[in-house]
Amino acid sequence: MGLKGALILTAVAGVVAVVAGLLIVIKSPGEYGLDSGGRDQLQLAAQPSGMPQQALFKAAPTVPPPLPALVPAPPLMPSTPKRIVVKRLGISAPIESIGLAKDGTIEVPPVEKANLAGWYREMSTPGEAGPAIILGHKDTRTTGAVFSKLWEIRNGDTIEVKRQDGLTAVFTVGGVEQASKKTFPTQRVYGNQTNAQLHLITCGGTYDRTIGHYKDNIIVYATMTSSYRG
């Protein structure tokens, strides 16, 4: 079967959590981009489709995530994330742990809780070595949501994740990608990494009224460059 062959090619040997994430994403990449269940259906005349004043990251799916022009900080011990803050965009939102739905796809935060982000608990915790994945809605049927301004983020911006252990992991953005949900860069987003990375995912691009979903994902790649207590 073609899907099983693709899963094998994208799996990362020896990392069980990453393999699990790759298997599920490649099976239903749209679900990783908040693509089902009537979500992301704000009826607007137009949606932003690009990143003005900054070139989007573009590369083959197997190319590693882009890194900021700073030395990565040493990884931290695992700790559950509690809140995500992006000061320049005015984002300050609680984080909920999410796993897999009964159909084998990744859960997303409840659409009625617009200002809630979801951390995929089968991957690294923010600050731990490897990619930590946080998803959030772009909008709902009636209002903007937690990641409505994510497409405005810039290389060099900082993202703070407050953790249960009292530490705040600070990540610096190294690149932003707009990818079609049909060709989701699975390996780049979920593949194993030696440093502590944070990958944010939301919807973006053109809103297709015929299917009730956005066609693309906005993916932010950031690397931990410092941490502090507080």
Rank of each mutant, 00 (worst) to 15 (best):
P72D: 04
A101R: 09
G118K: 03
P81A: 02
I106C: 02
L116F: 05
E112F: 03
R88E: 15
P94W: 06
K138A: 14
K87P: 03
K138Y: 13
T80K: 15
A129Y: 08
K87C: 04
S79T: 07
P110I: 01
V86M: 12
K138H: 14
A73H: 10
P78H: 01
E112L: 05
M77H: 14
I98A: 04
K138Q: 14
G127P: 02
P131M: 07
N115V: 02
G104C: 03
E107N: 11
P78S: 03
P74E: 09
A117N: 02
Y120V: 15
D103L: 05
I98D: 08
A101D: 14
P81E: 09
G130H: 01
R121G: 11
L100V: 02
P131W: 12
T105D: 09
I91M: 09
E122I: 13
P74K: 11
A101S: 13
T105E: 06
E122T: 14
V108C: 12
Y120Q: 12
P131T: 12
I133C: 09
G99M: 04
A114P: 02
E128N: 12
L116Q: 01
P72W: 12
A114I: 03
I91Y: 11
A129F: 09
I84T: 15
E107W: 09
I91K: 07
L89W: 07
E107Y: 04
Y120P: 07
T105M: 03
M123V: 05
S97T: 12
K113R: 03
P78N: 03
G99V: 00
R121K: 15
P126Y: 06
P81W: 02
Y120E: 13
E128C: 10
V85T: 15
P131E: 05
N115W: 07
R121L: 11
A69K: 13
G118V: 04
M123T: 06
L116V: 03
E112D: 08
E107C: 06
E122L: 14
G130F: 00
A93M: 09
I133F: 02
G104K: 05
I95E: 10
E128A: 15
E122M: 13
G99L: 04
P94M: 05
A132T: 02
P109A: 04
G130L: 00
L100F: 14
V85H: 08
T80E: 15
S92W: 05
P126D: 10
L76K: 00
P126F: 04
P94R: 05
D139Q: 12
P109V: 00
L76E: 08
P68N: 06
K102I: 13
V108H: 14
I134Y: 04
L89F: 11
P72H: 08
T105H: 01
S92V: 13
A129V: 12
Y120F: 15
K82E: 15
A117V: 09
L76Q: 01
R88P: 11
H137T: 08
A129C: 02
G90F: 08
L116K: 07
M77Y: 11
A129D: 10
G127F: 03
I91S: 12
N115R: 05
E96Y: 00
I91D: 09
E128L: 07
I98M: 11
I106E: 01
S124Q: 09
L116C: 03
L135G: 15
I84F: 10
G127V: 03
T125L: 09
G136I: 01
P81V: 09
K113W: 00
E122A: 15
P109T: 01
S97L: 10
I84H: 08
P126I: 11
E107H: 05
R83S: 14
I106T: 10
R88T: 15
L135N: 14
E128M: 13
